[in-house]
Design a protein around this nucleic acid. Structure first.
Lengths: 175, 175, 175, 175
DNA sequence: CATGAATGAGGCTTCATTCAT
DNA sequence: CATGAATGAAGCCTCATTCAT
């Protein structure tokens, strides 16, 4: 998985399985002892990365603090993870738009983000988006996060500031 | 170009050039009389679609109205274009993340959006993002637009409403 | 087709398509411009050989002679064809028992043998097998022909005699 | 062996050894503790089935009866065995035409049929094929048996009748 | 400039066989 | 003697690109 993440990040999803196997230090065919198909590998990797991202973002959540602080904590961890593991982040981005990822995987991916969605649900209570579908709000937040990450990666010197600016923008949307 | 747009939207960028040629009603070799390579086709298509999108969004801009109305006009045209030509939009999305698109093309694509950027520049004057890099603000707006389009396509019955909700969110970000 | 016949006769149906292409003097991939699939090649070859075999066996049939002479003429031509083109015959034998050959091809193959079946139908009139299903009689005759061919190939010096002995045996079965 | 027979009958001789091992309930590597190579397995299986077939056909032969009755007894047992164990029969057919089976195995297979050949030898005494090579006569009989079996399998309702009709045809050939 | 057959490198996948445990 | 993960050669097939007509 680590090898695949690295190679996909560098070469895109069209990278040959042979390269991944070599990176992993195993033989060409060995890869297919673990994944029946390349598409299988893509789907499992998608789910793993998505799950890890969500899990990391919620680990150590200060549940005692007020909701804005909690949301900011989650947001920070998310963006920190994405900028700390650019390969994982880039690969996850590729996978998210790949047509090899099945609807089932996409659905499972959304499930993994349920915790984040719940946080957002509470954040928008009484806010201007209280009547919009929650899925819509999640999509907007995700889009902002992605755009912010891009900017942080592109201009690392001010990463922390961009992170804050992105969060404030997001907060203005929901609350 | 039209044929390529249609085929890429349906099959992804890995669609064979032969299929595109057939869709266009020409011989498979003829395609290479117009584009030296497949990557060439991708880059030209990217630029064409991006330019069209930007042009459409600004055509008929009510320059006499206040800035918020102008921004909403642009936003509406953009999202209307995207939902009216789902093939163009989907293909443009694919192209946007493809590693076949050269930095030069990406740069030219940004140039095409200069008009939109100018509008946004004026919108955020004195707003909470007045100090952020303009490129960042454009990225956030683009991300919101994409997410909103996705939702409009997914739930066409309430498309108009989603469009408005998305705009209001965007406006809260900048002004 | 000729190349495939030769190679399959020599190496069995598991012969690589690359070898066939080389024998035909074309590139590896060119084969797939003519046959979508290796299975496709097998099926088309099966039909071609079966049809040729049946056609050759009936060409110049002495329709004025009595039925036994006609049957012997057909039988002789058949066995002559098989021994003259051992590659075709061997490949046809392989194809006949391959599970790559579709039921549709088998059916079409039987159709090709309709002329031979008609001859046999007339031969068995009033004979001991007049009440058996015609298909059964055809199968028995085919089986005898195959066995006789094997013997002719194996002992070419007496091929002509084996041919006659085989025919007499067959004639005793039907008339 | 039983597992191999079943799997080969269902999937052809190209069935993976791993599937056979699984069917046999052993690890895929264990198969190679008993057979040095897959070809080895094929050859041993060929011999076992051929031997069983011949042995069954001759068990309980009514040696006191006249030769025609003995031949019919043998014929019936043969065809009964083939229709009772379609997997064994089908696998034996595949093996018979496989190029993995060595000449030595083919020879040993013929040896196993020596008893049947002897019966046929006596049957054709003074008959129309008294001067033909015995091997030829055996081949013709085998061919008829195979064709008859095919028909019995295909139309089981009249199997017994087809068996008798096939025998009568064979008898007319030799006596 | 159009055509479309030919090319051949390269990708995914299978599977007989090995071998350390 | 059993296991089963690992191997890597080999096969089928795809497809961007060329080029003679």
């Amino acid at each position: 998985m680590a090898a695949a993440t690295k190679i996909f990040a560098a070469q895109g999803l069209s990278a040959p399985t042979a390269i991944i196997a070599k990176e992993a230090g195993v033989a060409n065919g060995s890869l297919f002892n673990y994944f029946q198909t390349k598409a299988d590998l893509l789907n499992q990797l998608y789910l793993e990365l998505k799950t890890e991202m969500a899990a990391v973002s919620l680990t150590g959540l200060p549940t005692e603090s007020d909701i804005k602080h909690q949301l900011f904590y989650m947001w920070s961890r998310w963006l920190e993870w994405a900028t700390s593991y650019p390969d994982k982040r880039r690969t996850l981005t590729y996978l998210g738009v790949s047509d090899e990822i099945t609807p089932a995987s996409h659905h499972a991916g959304s499930q993994a983000m349920a915790g984040i969605a719940r946080l957002l649900e509470r954040s928008r209570e009484n806010g201007p988006m209280q009547d919009a579908p929650l899925g819509f709000v999640v999509s907007l937040m995700t889009a902002l996060a992605e755009a912010t990450i891009d900017y942080m990666v592109q201009d690392p010197a001010n990463a922390k500031n961009h992170c804050k600016v992105g969060f404030d923008a997001m907060w203005r949307i929901v609350a």
